[in-house]
């Protein structure tokens, strides 16, 4: 019995040793070629070899499309293939930026572009602000020891898992003329509202739905940030008789700033790129009340009978430039604000 008892342990050791040898042999395989490469490549050039596959993928799928985008922006016509497109210089940019009064899109050569610009700016300002406020409030509540905390955390995160098209369709069923919301209002004796046909309401719902769909993600980031703040700081503040508001203002907010900046930058980039949910929900309507920049790019480049790829590419470059500028300004502001 005793020998039998030890046998499996000995067998286990044997197997472990064999696996160890095999692992060593496999891992040792590249040693020689790597040493040879190190001997031939001086300085930090071996690092390039390691990042080369990633760089290749990045180059082909990110950098090359940017270069192609520049070419399309500088060419005209409706031809798809780059070599068939006539060079027009800055004509597409000129056309997009030609406006008698930038505040009045109807005075612009490309009015839809400027409707998109102003709607996007309005959307970003309101949506990002509200998103941060609600995400922060939700994270603060979910960080407390409340009953059913796990359930609430999952419930707030759940919409993030849904496809934007599903999100938009769900809300369309709720908000359309004969939708659930109007049925409820009418059932309670009220008058239904044409939520998606009234310009102001449609804009409001585009923001609401976007916040509902994405808030969980940002809440999660802020929750992680809150949990990283050491509890003893709060204990010390409590002993100093600091009020909850003072603790929040003097401790929580400053220590949460890095997380808030991440949320701000990510939220802003996502808000500037808003398209899918709103396109399915309102189609950009009523009129042009919820046409955003990405929809202009999509409609101009892909949904029109005669596709104006050059204009769409120029629009996307202007959008990218604006995004870059915003992000740099935020980072600069963050550096200035850093202790």
């Amino acid at each position: 019995m005793g020998a039998g008892f030890h046998r499996p342990a000995a067998l286990g050791t044997l197997i472990a040793r064999a696996l160890g040898l095999l692992y060593g042999a496999v891992m040792g395989l590249p040693e020689r070629p790597m040493r040879a490469a190190q001997a031939r490549m001086r300085g930090g050039r071996l690092g390039w070899l390691f990042v080369a596959p990633n760089l290749l993928v990045f180059g082909v799928f990110t950098f090359l499309p940017i270069v192609i985008d520049f070419w399309y922006a500088l060419t005209g016509g409706a031809q798809l293939l780059p070599q068939d497109r006539p060079y027009v210089g800055a004509e597409n940019f000129r056309s997009l930026l030609a406006c008698a009064n930038y505040l009045d899109p109807t005075s612009c050569e490309r009015d839809l572009f400027w409707y998109g610009v102003w709607n996007t700016l309005k959307f970003v300002a309101i949506q990002v602000t509200l998103m941060i406020v609600f995400s922060l409030l939700t994270a603060l509540v979910l960080n407390r020891r409340i009953v059913g905390r796990g359930f609430y955390r999952a419930a707030f995160f759940y919409p993030v898992l849904l496809s934007p098209v599903v999100v938009a369709l769900i809300w369309k069923w709720i908000l359309q003329r004969n939708g659930i919301l109007n049925a409820t209002i009418q059932g309670a004796g009220g008058n239904g509202v044409n939520w998606l046909v009234d310009a102001d309401w449609a804009f409001f719902w585009s923001i609401f739905v976007s916040i509902w769909a994405h808030m969980g993600f940002y809440t999660l980031i802020l929750l992680a940030g809150l949990q990283a703040i050491p509890a003893d700081i709060y204990e010390a503040a409590e002993m100093d008789a600091a009020s909850p508001w003072r603790r929040f203002r003097r401790l929580t907010l400053p220590l949460l700033t890095p997380s808030l900046v991440v949320v701000f930058i990510l939220g802003m980039i996502r808000a500037v790129q808003i398209f899918d949910e709103v396109y399915v929900l309102t189609g950009g309507g009523p009129g042009t009340a919820t046409v955003y920049l990405v929809q202009f790019i999509y409609q101009t480049g892909f949904a029109a009978g005669v596709r104006q790829y050059g204009l769409a590419a120029a629009g996307s470059l202007l959008l990218a430039a604006a995004l870059l500028l915003f992000t740099l300004l935020q980072l600069r502001g963050l550096k200035r604000g850093a202790p």
Binding site: L112, R177, N178, N194, L196, V197, T282, G283, G284, G285, P286, G287, T288, T290, V291, Q295, Q299, A303, A304, G305
Partner: peptide
């Protein structure tokens, strides 16, 4: 029914069959 026309932007097509069907 202006909703059929107004509830979208651009040249996008929308039919009104469901309104008639209902």
């Amino acid at each position: 029914d202006k909703d059929v026309w107004v509830s979208s932007s651009g040249g996008g097509y929308r039919d009104a069959f469901s309104e008639f069907q209902n």
